[in-house]
Design a protein around this nucleic acid. Sequence first.
DNA 1: AATACGGGGGC
DNA 2: GCCCCAGTATT
Length: 325
Amino acid sequence: MPWRASPGAQPDPYHVWLSEIMLQQTTVGTVIPYFVRFIEAYPRVTDLAAACDSDILGLWAGLGYYRRARNLVATARLIARRGRFPQSPSELMELPGVGPYTAAAIAAIAFGIPVVPVDGNVERVVARIYAIETRLPTARPAITAAASQLGAQPAAVRHPGDFAQALFDLGATVCTPRNPSCPGCPWNQSCSAFALGIADQLPKKAAKRSREVRYGTAYLLLDPHGRIGLRRRPPTGLLGGMFELPGSEWTPATPSHEPPVPADWQQAGTIVHAFTHFELRLTVNAASIGALPDHLTAAPADIPLPTVMKKAVRLGLSALEGAVN
DNA sequence: AATACGGGGGC
DNA sequence: GCCCCAGTATT
């Protein structure tokens, strides 16, 4: 992992912070290329602080949870002004986008402070070691207390960053959500859930509710230079601050709508995209036009976009190509 | 305590 | 198709 310090080397707090923000609810494999591109573009936190919001949003496009990118900019500028990173968990918690987990992770990994960051991996490992059968999220306080108890071992106190990352690695490779590799686990002799034969049933989670369906229509306008017409979403809320195709609201019932301009509109089809709390079925219409209207931003078709809009643009462009042939 | 907030990968 | 992920902020 490109953010992890070599054995014996001093961790870079900027790398640790950036990676931990990116890794919130996001898998290692997804994060790596984004992290590498960010460090290439902005080698130091002062470089990030000096960059413009739009460039940073563009580099973040596709990674999801876009509020993280806005908080990232604000924090980079704060750190650059102060000239140093906060180190204690309580100070770190004051940074936008840094909660209890990330504060503990940065404090332990970047600054060697003996705290245990409790993420999904650690939650699972600890729930199994102590056979905590209470359902989440009710079990969270008990799990946090048990994690701190583990972190109080002398070896963990001597190397808080290594201990935290070892817990992550154990959760990612051995103590997995399904089919955990208990026979080869270095902690199986200390694991109550293994002794009880219930490791794969823990932690218990609350039942999920079903995902609502919403419908919308989007319009792809293509000019003779191969540019498409986009607009900027509001800075907060879903896909906050990102570019999108113009179109209708997204609602549980098919919304009424008008094309942004009169044109020879063709139906390109419908894309389906799953968000966290609803599924979007977006019907895409496409048209070629001599000049894009002033109220839209003319952008190259490969401009960074959130994934749902990439899908829509691809479908719209393919319909226009098909019409030419 | 519940909900909003993306996207990708595993099975 | 469902579950999960190096969670946080808001209500």
